[in-house]
Amino acid sequence: MTSQTETSPTALRIEPGMAERDPSTFLRRRGRVEFALSLATPIIFVLAWEFASRMGWMDKRFFPAPTNIFDSAVNMYQTGLLEKDLIASTLRILAGFALGVVSGLIAALALGLSRKTRAALEPFLSALYTVPKLALLPLLLLIFGLGEFPKVLLVAMTVFFQVWISCMEAILTIPETYKEAARSFGAKGWSMFRHVTWPALLPQLFINMRISIGIAVLVIVGVEFVQASEGIGYRIWHSWSLFQANRMYVGICVVAIMGYVFGYAVRWVGIWALPWTRARTKV
């Protein structure tokens, strides 16, 4: 051993850091930095684009400056075009999403709670899952005509598989102790569902609804490319074919914002509806 006075040269000193010495300042500063960073990324992106476009580094016919795109957006809003497209797409997304979630949940319960149903349907549904849903659009158009229903149905089919698989897995992996605890107090059938199965699958349901609503936006844009006379997807495709790059970018931005808003809405409903999972979301 080395000769020691107070501490050896290799002593380890554990002291308060910045976060401990002044925690309120630390937390406030961290909050401000994170907020600034979340804004900085899109702002820098847009500014760089504007700059590059004005300097003529990019072909303005394909990459118009963000300010020009914004002007187009204002113009489309004033003529009512944007509103009409937005409403058309939103209604399709929400209808398809609702249909998909409800049917997915029913399938998840039917397959998750009964071994026989699972044996009968799981391989079949799993095989269907891998069929690209957009590839079915021509078929749906043949069967149901050119109206709204095939569009909504295609969104619903996409959402259905997401919700079905994740919720079925959630039901199958409910810890046995919860089920035993409920059963020991006489819960069965409906009361088991209400007190254990349903709350246990909710977290998975919300995670998947968040993913699904994004996919619903993707699908509806794809569908509207092919067959629609209004809607954001139609607007993007139509503007492209008319060589109106500004309007095309307006459409793209609107789709991005729609996806963001829907995703957040689902997330906040989830936080509100699942108070017992809140403690787990650590800062």
């Binding site: 290799t10 002593a11 308060p16």
Partner: peptide, 25 residues
């Protein structure tokens, strides 16, 4: 947890006299 350096103290200090030469004592 402070001895394991997972947390830091809010006040005061901890001295660990180590033999040195390892990642964590």
């Amino acid at each position: 947890r402070m001895l394991a350096r997972l947390h830091k103290p809010s006040d005061g200090e901890i001295i660990i006299n180590t033999a040195g030469g390892r990642v964590t004592p």
